[in-house]
Design a protein around this nucleic acid. Sequence first.
DNA 1: CTCTTTTCGTTGGATTTCCAACATAATATT
DNA 2: AATATTATGTTGGAAATCCAACGAAAAGAG
Lengths: 221, 221
Amino acid sequence: MTAQLLKCPLFAGIEASDLAAMLGCLSAVKRQYSKGSFVFSAGDAAAFVGIVLFGRVHILKEDFWGNRTILSEITPPQLFGEAFACAGETALPVSAMVVEDSEILMLDYRRMVATCSSACSFHTAFIKNMMLILAQRNRALVEKMEHITRRTTREKLLSYLSEQVKRQGTNAIDIPFDRQELADYLAVERSALSAELSKMRDAGLLRFHKNHFVLLGEGVN
Amino acid sequence: MTAQLLKCPLFAGIEASDLAAMLGCLSAVKRQYSKGSFVFSAGDAAAFVGIVLFGRVHILKEDFWGNRTILSEITPPQLFGEAFACAGETALPVSAMVVEDSEILMLDYRRMVATCSSACSFHTAFIKNMMLILAQRNRALVEKMEHITRRTTREKLLSYLSEQVKRQGTNAIDIPFDRQELADYLAVERSALSAELSKMRDAGLLRFHKNHFVLLGEGVN
DNA sequence: CTCTTTTCGTTGGATTTCCAACATAATATT
DNA sequence: AATATTATGTTGGAAATCCAACGAAAAGAG
């Protein structure tokens, strides 16, 4: 389990030799869940953060009329519930359902924020990691939000591609999505996306092949 | 300034008597900015968190073709830049422009995460606050994302209203938006929103008047 | 290489949204 | 009370998206 955990961003920079003490400090408990069971259900209090060591967990949500939606799939060594735990939710808005027999490490949230005795110096690193995770997720969400709030497919694409150009520092970029994934990410239809890309190519805005795109500004040909 | 700061969620639960020491511990610096100047510009490293004490700041972004977008408006005693600072961005994707002559308190991010000597016990409370802020913003973003990713206006509305019903624990709810704000929040046109609400009323899904909505499930009339 | 599967682009019609304009209702102002 | 202002609902045509279906190209399997 140690090797597995050290890969988890939550424990980045933690020495393997410190891990055991740390887990004790966090009241870590390892539990087995069988397929179909729930780690927590909507309405529960958010008291812990879960790390999937083996197996697979779905975070789901039901609306007023009972329609279920899968919000995300958690695979090893990802964690879940951290935003709810940190926000101190008294009633979780989602449920965590086990899709494959799983082994999950539960961390007590209260132990996470309360810096313990000086003996546990790595606690600082841990909190730093936690904040990094929250902040990065935040960044990713804001970024996606910017793209999705645009009204037309073209605007969404321009917003997304601009972002990538800036990030990669060149107007010839490779994106990490295939067409279907890009469509899902931007919340549009795949076919409509393809069609719009073609139109944009014909309009001289960009060139592309597969995952590779070249944005064309004025005079850049 | 003290009273002002104690209202900022970042300092919740901090005693007024501790504040001065704390600000020292965080290398807090107060700076004046005149209208039109920039607190930071896209491309800068993210090294601090800013708290607007007086004035008004816009967070903006420019895309590849130079189109500007206002992402958010920061008014006292809100903070900004925290997600970038915590995520350790080496190049900020946005700029912070001062819209009205402002007074801004800058906090050194590195001081925030590094728990200092035992003398600064309130540092724990501070970090807890920071995580709470990040986590809550996260929650709000995920929630909004769920609504916006729906394809039709009706689905967006049902998603949003369901959420409110769950949160408020009753199917007769008051929402904090007027029509225009709700339309902006769900990323649709105001008139289309109104039209869709009328259709849904006629279909027997709900009743509404102003900000007050009543969702109707089976047999609930 | 051949066959199968997956990915991508294209098309056309049904559906939905956008947009601008206007009517009415509610609220604020004098 | 009269008027101005703002919020909300309604409408119709233009524009965009969705959706299903299909063909071509690319990738993978045998």
